[in-house]
Nucleic acid binder design. Structure first.
Lengths: 419, 419
DNA sequence: CACGTTTGTTCACCCATTGACCTTATCGGT
DNA sequence: ACCGATAAGGTCAATGGGTGAACAAACGTG
């Protein structure tokens, strides 16, 4: 009944390794390729440049582009103004008036909604503070539905939402729309998609769930691509979402690796010292007990209500705060080093509150990484602060929806040309 | 001059995500798909069954199969004997008389060579003990070349070697044929492919290098597939190669994840206790210092020359040996738990000497995993001993070569139909 | 203004899959 | 022994979709 979780294919190998390639798979594949090139393009594109980049003939590329324009997935702008000989090409860009993705975010201390267009622009957003520790899922779902309805009703008429994706700080039962365990919300076994489907603002929209760190990492990958980092190495990194809990995601070629059940990247429970302090997860010596935000506050001698701004302010005067950050950074460094030895990427992105504490954490992390990562000698590890702005999980959730369309524009076209 | 390392494409997405799909890509892709189905088939296959499994029409599947038969990649056996109505199908199997892969293995205490046919059978093998700690790469290359020549010259005449792959316990500079660092051989910056190319037995053969844990894991995946584990979950596991050093590989869908440079899976340098004993890598508290074979020997009060058989023998009487194994197993458990939290697979395969010590290690590992892996409640982790036989790295290396052919049979056919 | 250059478009051609139809081979029932 | 039913393998014209050559359009240069 309420099952509308599935439906979106991941943008990996477009011709799935199990299913055979039919002849129409060719066009399916190439359409996706062209659309992806337009969406992820660092600079301006033309039909000819697409053909060159993908190895298609100009005729084929042109044909595919025309189909995407007809489907309002790609927009044709003015002719390129060039200082060289030859006919100027027509500039192409992702269409910002057609399809869009609805991103919803549930966090411990707030809810957020953002509608993202194919060109990456935000078509509408909303935010609502609130304490969701030990909350009632039904109540939270209702609040989120209201917030989403606010945003959706104000969208321009031509916008078509391809679906919604909800970021949850939790382990999810993949595909089912069920939250297996959200420690900080104290939810377990909650059928969140079913709850959200009943909200007036979200009817008739396919809804899926996503892990907050995964989705933030996705937004981060996109942000770095826009900033010019489209190279494969730049699109591979370890993302760390530092909050009260510590989440993580391993991003390879712009796509977070989800693992067998979608539970990978739980860097917060990397062991720093097996005889260390007991963790809420039941184990001992987990990173979270060294570098979680509440632990940093406690070791700094500050109350748990202290904001990050206040923490940064105190840091200038209090040696205790400095010590506490150093202590945390060394632990993060150990966990990062362990992780990099296991997954071999050469870039670490600090997100969440860690992005704001970056200047105080990076040196300690780098020190541990230099001495503990085997490969650091040949491929120096870079530690950087996240680029993605606030509510990055909501942004990433919107992208997640759009990625479903980008990965298979043929299906989107088929579903909308004759409705 | 000596550059013949490259040339083999990895068997992931067959239509590469960057290059566009041309119309001949269709056949390339489908040929690979059919051949892969035949090679990885758990049971007997016929043309019709292939068509059904892959979603091709019987005519297309039949056409593709005929091409593979002509290229001597697939063998047509006798008709299937069936108890049902209808014409019996012709049974298909990977050809064992055509293409083969030459697998070479360099280990601290021995060299090994094995030629593997498409059906997984060994067409020839050799082994030579020897201590290669702090050895001269040129000398080792010469020995290995001799050993390979022995095996190759005795192959049946119809066998065509598609290439050679060398397993090295080392970090490799991917694509270049250079060993960046092999701690236990005391090699660094060695152009091993160049050295091997000069050996008489290996002329005119493309040679590539591979990490020993990666290649053993590949052999393990194949062994499990033959044993009936072709399901995606069964083909995803964490492989641990326990020897003096501890290597590892994260296998997803039968393919070891290599990471950005091919250095992933270094589980031996997972941190157990950051203030633990100093490791050869420069860091402190690495798993190797708790569970490396030499450490187990030392803590057992045995000399470094003690064999595993002797160790197992002593275990029955000496409480000190038992304690030492328990100590090691707890540390392995911590490292495994950390790894599983990061990469989310639900199966751990103990290889190398750990396979032989399995009964003494598994309980301790399982105990730590149960209490430290977040997801263990929903997806119980299974710890099993490796199935792949001795010299599994050489077997895996042979498979690595064959995988290059299986991933793109069209290229193999093109290169051999009109030589 | 003629020429070279590059882009976008058109169209006949070619390649690989498709699906209908046929043949072959076995089993079950009469 | 014969006749359907069932299923596998093969044949061939049709179709879908990329290819490449040719051409027109639009811009710089001399």
């Amino acid at each position: 009944m309420n099952k509308r979780g599935g439906g979106s294919s991941r943008p990996g190998p477009l011709l799935s390794p199990v299913g055979a390639a039919r002849q129409q798979s060719l066009r399916t594949h190439n359409l996706a390729l062209v659309l992806r090139a337009v969406v992820e393009a660092p600079g301006p594109l033309t039909r000819a440049r697409i053909a060159g980049a993908l190895g298609l003939t100009r005729s084929t590329a042109s044909d595919l582009v025309d189909r995407l324009i007809a489907a309002r997935l790609v927009d044709e702008l003015e002719p390129e103004l060039v200082g060289r000989a030859g006919r100027p090409g027509m500039l192409l860009a992702p269409h910002r008036g057609g399809v869009a993705g609805l991103g919803l975010e549930i966090q411990v201390d707030h809810l957020a909604v953002r509608v993202t267009a194919l060109d990456g622009s935000s078509l509408g957003e909303a935010r609502e503070a609130g304490d969701h520790r030990a909350s009632d899922p039904a109540v939270v779902a209702r609040s989120l539905g209201r917030l989403a309805a606010q945003v959706v009703t104000q969208l321009p008429a031509q916008i078509e939402l391809a679906g919604a994706c909800v970021s949850v700080p939790a382990l999810l039962r993949s595909g089912s729309g069920i939250v297996a365990l959200a420690p900080n919300l104290a939810w377990s076994g909650v059928d969140l998609v079913a709850l959200l489907c009943e909200q007036p603002g979200l009817r008739a929209l396919p809804i899926e769930l996503g892990n907050d760190a995964d989705l933030s990492a996705r937004a981060e990958a996109r942000a770095r691509a826009v900033a010019g980092g489209t190279a494969r190495e730049e699109q591979s990194f370890l993302y760390i979402a530092g909050e009260v809990g510590i989440g993580g995601a391993i991003v390879v070629d712009g796509e977070p690796a989800r693992g067998q059940h979608g539970w990978s990247g739980e860097i917060g429970h990397t062991v720093i010292d097996r005889s260390g302090p007991r963790c809420a997860c039941g184990a001992t010596g987990c990173l979270e007990q060294y570098a979680g935000l509440d632990v940093i506050r406690r070791r700094s001698g500050l109350s748990l209500e202290t904001t990050v701004d206040q923490l940064l302010d105190r840091e200038r005067r209090s040696i205790r705060v400095r010590r506490s950050l150093e202590w945390a950074s060394a632990a993060i460094g150990v966990a990062v080093a362990t992780t990099l030895n296991l997954v071999d990427v050469e870039r670490v992105v600090l997100g969440g509150v860690y992005a704001r504490l970056f200047d105080h954490l990076a040196p300690g992390i780098e020190r541990e990484v230099r001495s503990r990562v085997l490969a650091a000698r040949w491929a120096p590890v870079e530690v950087v602060a996240a680029l993605a702005g606030p509510d990055s999980a909501a942004t990433g959730a919107g992208w997640r929806v759009l990625d479903g369309v980008v990965a298979d524009p043929a299906r989107w076209i088929a579903g909308h040309s004759h409705p």
